[in-house]
Each structure stands twice: as C-alpha cells, then as structure tokens.
Amino acid sequence: MRHHILSALYSARYSRLCLGGLFMFLCQAAIAQESRYNMTRGVTEISQRVYGLHMTIFYICVVIAIIVFGLMFWSIVRHRKSAGAVPAQFHGSMKIELLWTAIPVVILVVMAIPATQALIAMEDASESDLTVLVTGSQWKWHYKYLDYPIEYFSVLATPRAQISNEAEKDALYLLEVDKPLVIPTGKKVRFLLTADDVIHSWWVPDFAIKKDAIPGFINETWTRVDKPGLYYGKCAELCGRDHGFMPVAVEVKSEADFEAWAAEQVALQEAARMADAAATPMSMDELMTLGEKVYGTACAVCHQASGEGLPGVFPGLKGSAMVTADIPGHVRIVVFGKAGTAMQAFARQLSTSELAAVITYERNAWGNDTGDMVQPADVAAAIQGGE
C-alpha cells in the first residue's frame, strides 16, 4: 500500500513538474520576440514578414515539442515498471502510421505556403525607383548609383588604435564607415551585387537582406525603408584574413534630403575631377601629411602601420627594393594593382593627389628616406599611359 501511495504521489508531482516546465517554456517563448537572442525584427515590410514567418514557425515547433515531449514524459511515468505496467505485444498499426505520416505533411504544407510567398516577395526587384551597383572587394564596398553620376568606396572608419587595443573601443567598433550608402525613404531601391576578387556577402539585418556578391555574376535584391536612420551590417562571407573589417552602413534619408545629398555629391565629384585634372605640384611636407592619412586608411590593413607587412601574406614596404629604387614600378603597382594578388588597383579609388602622396609617403617613411617626390602629374601620366 505504501509503495502504491508513494508511486501515485511521485506520478502527480512529476506531472506537475513537467506541466510547470512546459508552462515556463511557453512563457519564455512568448517573450522571446523581445529577446536580443532572437531574429532582428527589422524596419522594412519584408523584414516584418520574415520575422512574422519566423515566429509562426517557432510557435508551431513549440506546440509540437509540448505535445511530443508531454506524451513521452507521461508515458514514461504512467507506464513505468515500478507502477506494474506490462508491455503490450503488437506489430504496428496501419492507421497510426498513416496518421503520423499525414500530420507532418500537413504541417509542412501549412508552413510552406507563407514561406514561399515571402521568398517570392523578397526576390521581386521589379519596378524599382533607384538602382545601386554594389561591388565587394577585399575589404571594402564600392557603390555606384546607376540613376546618378555618383560612385564611391565605403571603407571601415574604426581607428587603428582601437583595432590594436591601444584605445578604448566604442559602441560602433568595426561598424562605422567613412562613407555610408545613402538611400531615400519610401522608394524601392534595387541592389545589383557583384565582386572584384572573392565571394563576399552584403548583409543588413534590419532590411532582411543577405545576398552573395560573386565575381563574374550579378545577383539582385531590393528594399524599401520608411524610417530614416543609420543601419549597420557586415560582410557575411568569410572573404579573407580581414573579413571582420568589412562593415556595411546604410544611411536612409527623407526624399528631399536624399535629393539634396545627391546634388551635393554630383557637384563634389565633378569638382574633384576638375581639381584632379588641374592638380598642382605639392611640397614634400604636403605629400607626407596627406600620404600618411591615405596610407592609414587604404594600406595599413595589409601592409601594417609599421610598413613591415605580414611575412608570407602581404609584403613589407619598409626597405623594399621596389619602394626604395623602382619609382615607375612603384607607381604602376599602386595605380593598377597586381593580378592574382590582394593588391588592388587604386586608380579609381583615390585621386591623383592622394596617389602621389601615398607613394611619396611609402618611399620616405619607416627609414626608407629616399628623398623621392611623386607628383600628381606623374600619376596622371601613368594612368593615361595605361598598364
């Protein structure tokens, strides 16, 4: 008698524990929408649809888990050996087998319908108001507006001191860029994505966008954002040693502010082209000051701030035979890059003044002290002459 009473009490207590655990699990699931561990809710209609689909399937999985584990735990307790349960001897039931095959099929169909609708909507980039060509390269993004004469590179702006742990890291560590992509609110923006070197992936969680940028191919995606703000993302493909230093930043402006920004950029880029064409000779101090700034932004990631590079990966510039002796070769490799390596062509990334300055800086920094000066006219002549 005592044994049966204890077993009954144990069974009841165990059942309450199971039910309590399941109740707590449901409560956690209910508040999971606001958890920082959950999927980003996003700010676009598509991102909201994706989030809603995610939560719907999540709750379906929660219900399935409750039913399956509830039945399993109930069976374990109710039919345990100590309660005197005797195993039944049978060899299957066609009805049960059909039932547990049909139910999962129905569940999958129920989940597939909204999932397919969301995927179709995500891929429909037709009837766009603005098109931007996004090109990934190690380790920066190039944005070219096909509806405006605007194009520029977007590069990590986190100070090198933070990366090397010489300064305290702020909230935007490895997120901020020098020039974010700018798009207008309320407009359907189509993105064409490709790459210059290896596979990259343009990922902005708030827009529910993650699309690969593949050399030789063009992928497309789109977004429409109604809320102005600055949204961050990352390259989500392991694209090389400095993959983590390739952030994405998108600034969404009101339509009027965007048009004002676009007009300003067109004027600035035209002025830069005119200034580039009429660049005057610079003094050594001017070249070294500008060159140090350009080097820190465009070159230090690979060749290091010390100019020593990374043995076996990126060549050092300190004491290099080319940097200390071969001026034409030095200009050529900076301007046109080197095929088959990570050395990019900087001709369309930097002005002739910036190119001349960084080449001069490399030839006179870290003890190289060649005394050589490369002027914007020398770089312009090299560009005009081609490779």
Score class of each variant (00 low, 15 high):
Arg2Gly: 14
His3Tyr: 04
Ala8Gly: 12
Leu9Met: 13
Cys18Gln: 10
Gly20Leu: 08
Phe25Arg: 00
Cys27Ser: 06
Ala30Trp: 14
Gln33Tyr: 10
Asn38Tyr: 10
Val43Gly: 07
Glu45Val: 11
Ser47Trp: 04
Arg49Thr: 02
His54Arg: 09
His54Glu: 10
Thr56Ile: 04
Ile57Tyr: 00
Tyr59Thr: 08
Tyr59Lys: 03
Ile60His: 00
Ile60Arg: 00
Cys61Glu: 09
Ala65Phe: 15
Ile67His: 01
Ile67Trp: 10
Leu71Ile: 13
Arg78Gly: 00
His79Gly: 00
Ala85Phe: 14
Pro87Gly: 05
Gly92Gln: 11
Met94Ile: 14
Lys95Thr: 12
Glu97Ile: 07
Ala102Glu: 05
Ile103Ser: 02
Pro104Gly: 09
Val106Arg: 04
Val109Cys: 15
Ile113Glu: 10
Pro114Met: 09
Leu119Val: 11
Leu119His: 07
Met122Gly: 02
Glu123Val: 03
Glu123His: 15
Glu123Cys: 10
Asp129Tyr: 01
Val132Thr: 09
Leu133Asp: 11
Leu133Gln: 11
Trp139His: 15
His142Arg: 15
Glu151Phe: 03
Glu151Tyr: 08
Ala157Thr: 04
Arg160Val: 04
Gln162Val: 10
Gln162Asn: 07
Gln162Asp: 07
Glu168Met: 08
Ala171Pro: 00
Val177Pro: 03
Asp178Glu: 12
Leu181Lys: 11
Gly186Pro: 10
Val189His: 02
Phe191Ser: 01
Leu193Met: 10
Val198Ala: 11
Ser201Lys: 15
Asp206Val: 02
Ala208Lys: 07
Ala208Glu: 02
Pro215Thr: 09
Asn219Tyr: 10
Asn219Ala: 11
Asn219Gln: 13
Trp222Phe: 12
Thr223Val: 14
Val225Leu: 02
Lys227Phe: 00
Pro228Leu: 02
Gly229Lys: 08
Leu230Met: 11
Arg241Ile: 09
Arg241Val: 09
His243Asp: 15
Val248Arg: 08
Ala249Cys: 13
Asp257Val: 04
Trp261Thr: 08
Gln265Gly: 01
Leu268Thr: 12
Ala271Asn: 12
Arg273Thr: 04
Pro281Met: 01
Met284Asn: 07
Leu290Asn: 05
Gly291Thr: 09
Thr297Trp: 02
Gln304Ala: 12
Gly312Met: 07
Val313Met: 11
Phe314Asp: 12
Pro315Met: 11
Lys318Ala: 05
Ile327Trp: 04
His330Arg: 02
Val334Ala: 12
Val334Ile: 13
Val334Lys: 01
Val335Leu: 12
Gly337His: 10
Lys338Tyr: 06
Ala339Arg: 08
Gly340Arg: 06
Gly340Glu: 04
Met343Ser: 06
Met343Glu: 06
Gln344Cys: 01
Arg348Asp: 15
Leu350Phe: 06
Thr352Val: 15
Leu355His: 03
Ala357Trp: 03
Tyr361Pro: 00
Glu362Thr: 13
Asn364Tyr: 05
Asn364Val: 07
Trp366Gly: 01
Asn368Ile: 03
Asp369Val: 02
Gly371Cys: 07
Met373Arg: 15
Val374Asp: 00
Pro376Arg: 03
Ala377Trp: 03
